[in-house]
Amino acid sequence: MKMIEFFAQHWRELVPPAGVAILVTLITIPIFLAIGAWSATSQLYGGRLAKRVVNSYLAVFRGTPLLIQVFWIFYGLPLIGIRLHPIVAGILALSLNFGAYASEIVRSGLNSVAHGQHEAATMLGMTRRQSLRRVIFPQALVVSAPALANQVIELFKNTSLLGLITVAELIRGGRQLGVVTFDPMASWILVAAFYVVIAGLAAFGMRRFERRLNRALVSTGATP
């Protein structure tokens, strides 16, 4: 009963930091997907220099913890004269980190498309760029969508690290609520409830998107 009263009394105080976490997630999604698509296509179809650049990027951002990357960008870049707002620094770190993992997901999706699809696009007179955009990527997206959806949910949860560079997200908001109310346990349970609800809604939305994507591709005959 006490916990319910605490939730009813204080949940509104976590709405602004939850909004910050959602905003950071929504801004980061198209950026990390673009990075993932670029790095995957560079690995598969790029020249030697492009492949080396991408492999170096992947080695760094897959081989180091996200927290270190956040610190590198927020505290390290000012050492060379580049100062970023905490939210901008956080979005950049999240985009580069999740883009590195999305690269492997997209690359696997591209490899799953039958070689005959490439040949058919070539016979129709399409350039490589046109065939990728019109034929290959839509089919690869169907295969990659579930894993990319999981990445989106992980992205939302990892916005919690940005509190360490003064971004007013959910974890930072929960810590402040615990100090004000002298009830840190109830505050953290409320924070966890926010994460569960928002992540659940995101998962539901992703599943609906996957079903619509599948129906759209089936209706056009563009199945892998």
Rank of each mutant, 00 (worst) to 15 (best):
Met1Thr: 12
Ala8Asn: 05
Ala8Trp: 02
Trp11Phe: 14
Gly19Arg: 07
Gly19Ser: 09
Ile22Ala: 07
Leu23Ala: 15
Val24Glu: 08
Ile27Ser: 10
Thr28Gln: 05
Thr28Gly: 10
Ile29His: 09
Trp38Tyr: 15
Ser39Phe: 15
Thr41Ile: 07
Arg48Cys: 09
Lys51Tyr: 00
Lys51Leu: 04
Val53Gln: 08
Asn55Asp: 15
Ser56Pro: 00
Tyr57Ala: 03
Phe61Ile: 05
Arg62Tyr: 04
Gly63Pro: 11
Gly63Thr: 07
Trp72Asp: 01
Ile73Glu: 02
Phe74Ser: 01
Gly76Leu: 03
Gly76Glu: 08
Gly76Val: 09
Pro78Glu: 00
Ile91Glu: 02
Leu96Gly: 02
Phe98Ile: 02
Ser103Gly: 08
Ser103Ala: 15
Val106Asp: 00
Arg107Val: 03
Asn111Asp: 11
Asn111Pro: 01
Gln117Leu: 09
Glu119Ile: 03
Ala121Val: 09
Met123Ala: 15
Leu124Arg: 15
Met126Gln: 12
Met126Phe: 15
Leu132Asp: 07
Arg133Leu: 13
Val135Asn: 12
Val135Thr: 12
Ile136Tyr: 05
Ile136Leu: 13
Pro138Trp: 11
Leu141Cys: 09
Val142Glu: 04
Ser144Lys: 12
Leu148Val: 11
Ala149Trp: 00
Lys157Gln: 04
Asn158Val: 11
Ser160Ala: 12
Leu164Asp: 05
Ile165Ala: 11
Val167Cys: 13
Glu169Asp: 05
Ile171Asp: 03
Gly173Ile: 01
Val179Asn: 11
Thr181Pro: 06
Thr181Ala: 04
Phe182Trp: 08
Asp183Glu: 10
Met185Trp: 14
Ala186Asp: 12
Ala186Gly: 13
Ser187Gly: 11
Leu190Tyr: 01
Val197Asp: 10
Leu201Trp: 04
Ala202Asn: 00
Ala203Arg: 03
Arg207Thr: 06
Phe209Trp: 10
Glu210Tyr: 08
Arg211Asp: 05
Leu213Gly: 08
Asn214Phe: 04
Gly221Arg: 10
Gly221His: 11
Ala222His: 14
